[in-house]
Design a protein around this nucleic acid. Structure first.
Length: 578
RNA sequence: GCCCUCGUAGCUCAGGUGGACAGAGCAUCGGACUUCUAAUCCGGCGGUCGCAGGUUCGAAUCCUGCCGGGGGCGCCA
């Protein structure tokens, strides 16, 4: 077991159960401590539960717990804390499986089939900052939950259906297919959309054609569908190019837009009706899930079918749940969607449960996130008040990173500088988005995210490159996965680094607990800081003892490996040189 | 009006489901480079954890009420 905290948890849990069978399953509450390596906090609460003196219980726990060869020092302190200091040799031994590809991270048990719904841009519309967080957070979760051994199904729920497509298709015809395709493929989606919108608003004849086209689209007219498909295909090509630049793992096969559920909507409504859940209210067909109220305290409907007979997004969302659960056999659904949609999603989940499509232990979870703000504290926009295109954001990030690289890394050739600028620029945007609790809003600040100091991607990338550079400097090949780790602790800084390294598995697991990637960020930042402290204090190549040198080289290699792995789970590149 | 969410150092944020004096980073002040990449490190300064009650041996964390910011509240997604 790589993570000593997990072992302590197990050993103390066993001891608790031996002391009193009623304590079986109780959490021993092992936490990192300022007074030792770890502290055990359970004696106070459990002592109270048993009506016993907490200190006495702590003493008994110490007598009972089996930690030979693991702890070098154990003591009871204060009202009943137990301080645990790990044995150095044991601690170093925990590094053993940190070199293998899983970096000591145990596979989730049981593995689940998880559908993650994220990114979801709109066809024939530019991707903008509004899609940034869903894309970045969703991808980090997909990577991390996948690494933990779950089967991940990515769904990119494109906005590819609805009334705007009438005007978009008519505009496409006006332009000519060839011309329209060119315009869309170069990525001028906003221009295309705005032109259509302008005509729709200003030209009656055009508006009539557009409305007629919507009817034809919904009626399944073959020619109309072909034109619609053209729009969708061109947009998907464009989105894919953005994902590619951003290093997002969404691919062509993950596109599953709203239109994919069209043919299922009738069945969904029929089933809701058959189950007696449907209520006709004001002409609309609704389900009233319990516990949701509107302005006047009246029951709030989820409108499945509108008064005009059309389907709204609620119907599509229900069809998607049904499909993911019943056809894909998922056990866990994640929706990486902004916080404002919280009530809507909760209602959809509630209705899906009522319909029997979402039976526990299977569950759906809204992974909500806050807004990206400008320095004025309002939604992030350009100076002229426009929404910020993702493409422009990426360009600027790479441009700014390139300036830094040009001054700080003259030792790299032009090609390598460009590669590093890309990794640093894109990484900075992603890390800024991931490194604070997702439910909070955050202020978009170029200088802070690209800073070489502090909790930023560039700082982590630098620490990684520095650890790697030692091997180049010494003209050594880094160890391969099958070589044994041979770390011996001879210095306090080595010990701190070792402790931090072996906590990787716990850090990764903590992301899955509550869908919080920022915990991995915090861990990696701590690791980078601990490593640089080690690096300052402990000569590696210049170590006077051959065994110490080998041991420290291993620490460098493991640190670089864990940093790279952790960054990869966040979707961030770690260049070998910087 | 109701519901959700946030409020921690001058600034940006952590704080693992109640634990030992509240932690980082930035900024600021003071130190360390003929470097294993100083894109770094070491140290100092800095907090009535929005306010007021309550539960508890013990509260930034749980409960209640207030104050303040953001968001949502039937046919858009």
């Amino acid at each position: 077991m790589a993570d000593p905290q997990l072992l302590l948890r197990q050993r103390f849990a066993e001891a608790l159960e031996r002391i009193d069978p009623s304590l079986a399953g109780a959490d021993p509450v092992i936490r990192p401590s300022q007074h030792a390596d770890f502290q055990v906090n359970s004696a106070m609460a459990l002592g109270k539960r048993l009506g016993r003196n907490p200190r006495e219980l702590a003493d008994q726990l110490l007598a009972e717990v089996e930690l030979a060869g693991i702890a070098s020092q154990l003591e009871v302190a204060g009202p009943g804390f137990i301080n645990v200091t790990l044995d150095d040799a044991y601690l170093a031994g925990c590094l053993a499986d940190l070199r293998d590809p899983r970096r000591g991270v145990p596979a989730a048990e049981p593995a689940e089939r998880v559908v993650i719904d994220y990114s979801a841009p709109n066809v024939a519309k530019e991707m903008h900052v509004g899609h940034l967080r869903s894309t970045v957070i969703g991808d980090a979760l997909a990577r991390t939950l996948g690494f933990l051994g779950n089967e991940i199904i990515r769904h990119n729920h494109l906005g590819d259906w609805g009334t705007p497509f009438g005007m978009l298709i008519e505009h496409l015809l006006d332009l000519g297919e060839q011309e329209a395709a060119t315009e869309l493929s170069v990525g001028d989606l906003n221009g295309f959309y705005k032109q259509a919108r302008t005509k729709f608003d200003g030209d009656e004849a055009f508006a009539d054609r557009a409305r007629a086209r919507v009817v034809a689209l919904q009626a399944g007219d073959v020619e109309t569908l072909r034109l619609w498909r053209l729009l969708v295909d061109q947009s998907e090509l464009y989105f894919s190019s953005i994902y590619d630049r951003m290093g997002v793992t969404l691919t062509d096969t993950d596109y599953r837009g709203e239109s994919a559920y069209n043919e299922l909507l009738d069945g969904v409504v029929d089933e809701l009706r058959a189950k007696g859940l449907l209520v006709t209210d004001d002409g609309a067909e609704c389900v009233f899930p319990e516990g949701f109220v509107g302005r006047e305290g009246e029951p709030l409907p989820l409108i499945v079918r509108k008064r005009d007979g059309g389907y709204g997004y609620a119907a599509t969302d229900l069809a998607a749940i049904r499909f993911r659960m019943l056809d894909l056999d998922a056990t866990w659904l994640l929706y990486v969607v902004g916080a404002p949609q919280s009530e809507h999603l909760e209602m959809v989940f509630a209705v899906a449960r009522m319909a029997g499509w979402l039976e526990p232990p299977a569950r759906a979870e809204h992974v909500a996130f806050g807004s990206v703000l400008g320095d004025d504290g309002k939604i992030f926009r350009t100076r002229s008040g426009e929404t910020v295109k993702l493409a422009d954001l990426i360009d600027e990030a790479i441009g700014r990173a390139a300036e830094v690289v040009a001054t700080k890394s003259p030792h790299l050739d032009a090609t390598e500088q460009a590669e590093v600028a890309e990794a640093v620029g894109v990484g900075a945007i992603k890390y800024a988005d991931l490194s604070s609790d997702r439910v909070n809003d955050y202020v978009f600040d170029w200088d802070r995210m690209l800073s070489l100091q502090g909790n930023t991607a560039p700082y982590l990338q630098y620490a990684h490159a520095r650890a790697r550079s030692i091997f180049r400097k010494a003209d050594l090949e880094p160890p391969t996965a099958d070589q044994p780790v041979a770390v011996t602790i001879t210095h306090a800084a080595e010990r701190e680094l070792t402790k931090q390294l072996v906590a990787f598995a716990g850090a990764v697991a903590s992301v899955a607990d509550g869908m919080r990637p920022h915990r991995l960020c915090t861990y990696l930042f701590d690791l980078a800081q601990t490593y640089t402290a080690f690096y300052e204090q402990c000569p590696v190549l210049r170590a006077d003892d051959e065994a110490v040198r080998a041991s420290r080289l291993d620490l460098c290699d493991l640190t670089a490996g864990v940093l790279a792995q952790g960054l990869d789970l966040l979707g961030i590149e770690a260049p070998e040189r910087i």
